[in-house]
Design a protein around this nucleic acid. Sequence first.
DNA 1: CGCACCATGTAATGCGTTACATGATTTT
DNA 2: AAAATCATGTAACGCATTACATGGTGCG
Lengths: 182, 182
Amino acid sequence: MLKFAILGFLNYAPMTGYEIKQRIDRSTTHFWHAELSQIYVTLKELQKNEEVTSTLEEQSGRPDKRVYTITPKGRQDLHQWLEDSQVELSPKKELLILKIFFAAQLEPWQVRSQLQTALSLHRKQLEYYRHEAAESIRASGAEFPLLTQDVRMWEATRRFGEQYEELYVHWIEEMLAEFSEE
Amino acid sequence: MLKFAILGFLNYAPMTGYEIKQRIDRSTTHFWHAELSQIYVTLKELQKNEEVTSTLEEQSGRPDKRVYTITPKGRQDLHQWLEDSQVELSPKKELLILKIFFAAQLEPWQVRSQLQTALSLHRKQLEYYRHEAAESIRASGAEFPLLTQDVRMWEATRRFGEQYEELYVHWIEEMLAEFSEE
DNA sequence: CGCACCATGTAATGCGTTACATGATTTT
DNA sequence: AAAATCATGTAACGCATTACATGGTGCG
């Protein structure tokens, strides 16, 4: 699936693996992330599969860079994936919730401590969505006026993230209220 | 991490791999799932690691079954994991959101179609949390009155799932409203 | 008669993470 | 002087999925 995230970014402009990683980190990382090494591996597979091509650009004073470009085949595969609708929910893996499921083994103060740690992480993430993420989307909109539709979609995914973190924070706060009386 | 889910279930009572799979499917599957084959593999590793032991029980007319029991070491590992707090958010992988991120490539009717498909899946899942899941937790509570603390935790995770699906449904409905005018 | 359920497992493959290796430039 | 950034990649490992293999019982 990472391949589609990569094709999606290359569809905007040719770029290097390193740059793809930066884009992911600044935009999709909270619903789709990847390590650099895996991006390089996936780019190689995409090239073998003729979905991208690459050229080596020499640079003075820095390592040469390999710039990847999406091919018509790659563009078609991306489109196909975008059009196909999923028939199943994305499987979730939520460690905190799994822990809470078995947390009757713990003392109430230990449960509270777990919840407190998670709460501060999720509050921080919520602030990120509300400020940095919102600002970075606004900035892209100002910089690339041709991408209004794209900006609209990015903003929609940001709102999803924001609402998700609001829900998480709210749920933890309720749990803490319930477990504070013991 | 699957190992902790398995240890968590074995901590209630000895059981087979097959039974663990059923328990997971009836309870944690929406925040932690696993394939049967992987459960068998993980049980073998746990046994090699002396966190569980197993005995083969012969059955007439059915395949023999291997019943796993948690050891003191397994119990300790489970506890350790329950006590350790996570310092990072669980990484999420949400395919629908990734698709929406790149969906400016699609026609508005295609976006609507994607959203509609997802909407019915999430509505169904929401109903599941509200009815089957709630009912099954109530039933366990009635059957095992000693597990009140556990039931309370299970119910908390169910509420999380319910709220998550409410958020998802709500977000998709808003998206549909936004994209219906085109 | 066929399907679902009970019950176990192996093998192949896919996908991702972590660690390792290299090395110049720019910023603190 | 140290750390971060730019830039690429390989190797080992971990974890999960899918496919394959087996075979009896019970139900509609």
